[in-house]
Design a protein around this nucleic acid. Structure first.
Lengths: 145, 145
DNA sequence: CGATAATAAATCGTGTGCGATATAAAAGGC
DNA sequence: GCCTTTTATATCGCACACGATTTATTATCG
């Protein structure tokens, strides 16, 4: 049994399919907010701290500017954020929530609870599993750096 | 502290970013095989069982035909598989490995070990975590079905 | 048997994701 | 102070991923 090419034993495949499964749970909830899942993550990040730069957001979300720039333009078109060149450093683009973007947070407050319900697990169990997955992510990121 | 919109506590975000982290580890390994990560998953599935249908593969990989059809066309163009309409049921497309596609398995045998190394965890620990993530996926899929 | 329903892939449009490259601004070196 | 290098974002090409629809074939029902 030296053959280890079994899909059902791959943790990467479990993670990959779990990520899609989360997306499917989020979809109807985020449709109400007019957001896609990556857009929602960007908004959550900005609700935590307004006025971040594109690069700063990319570090937190582990995304490149080639992914973020078009995504952020859509959020701007939707009226949730503004993209402004920094005065001090013209290379930098600062992201600011609009009033509508700030208001959207209220509507989004109910989302995490729905996800916890769908996962059918206790908060403690989710927190423990979450920490393990983050630790795995860090190990993987370390190996490629 | 009723505000639960904290990115770093989201298990979905951990899963989402871990999935990207796996992709980055796989990338250089799969470049050697001329495969993308989703293409690799499809090939693993076909190495386990040749002659599957598009729909059958989609069920195992949790992917729609709208995703698989172009992906499988690329695998066909690359010379790893053939796509043939079934004789018994002309609606069905059967996927068959070419000789080159079968040979590719030998080169792929080394990949899982590299991923385990990058994860910096024991096989047992990975197997346990994998099972937990699969169980979470099932709960999520159940909630949307 | 013929109309209708169900099924399997494919197609289309939109939105990620990323590598490679381009552009522009700031920083550093001499 | 100019020239090179670095940094921040944007652009482009390619490959997913999915919902909605289309097309072709098979199954079902009267």
């Amino acid at each position: 049994m030296s053959d280890q090419l079994k899909l059902d034993t791959f943790i990467c495949f479990a993670v990959y399919t779990a990520s899609h499964a989360f997306n499917r749970v989020y979809k109807p909830l985020l449709d109400e907010l007019g957001l896609t899942y990556p857009q929602y993550l960007a908004m959550v990040c900005l609700w935590e701290e307004d006025g971040q730069t594109v690069g700063g957001l990319g570090e937190k979300l582990f995304l490149e500017s080639s992914t973020l720039t078009p995504l952020l333009k859509r959020l701007e078109t939707a009226g949730y954020i503004r993209r402004e060149r920094s005065r001090e450093d013209e290379r930098v683009v600062v992201l600011r929530l609009t009033e509508e973007g700030k208001r959207l947070k209220e509507k989004a407050e109910t989302v995490p609870g729905c996800i916890i319900d769908a996962s059918n697990r206790s908060g403690d169990e989710l927190a423990r599993l979450q920490a393990e997955i983050v630790a795995l992510r860090e190990a993987l990121n370390k190996s490629t750096s």
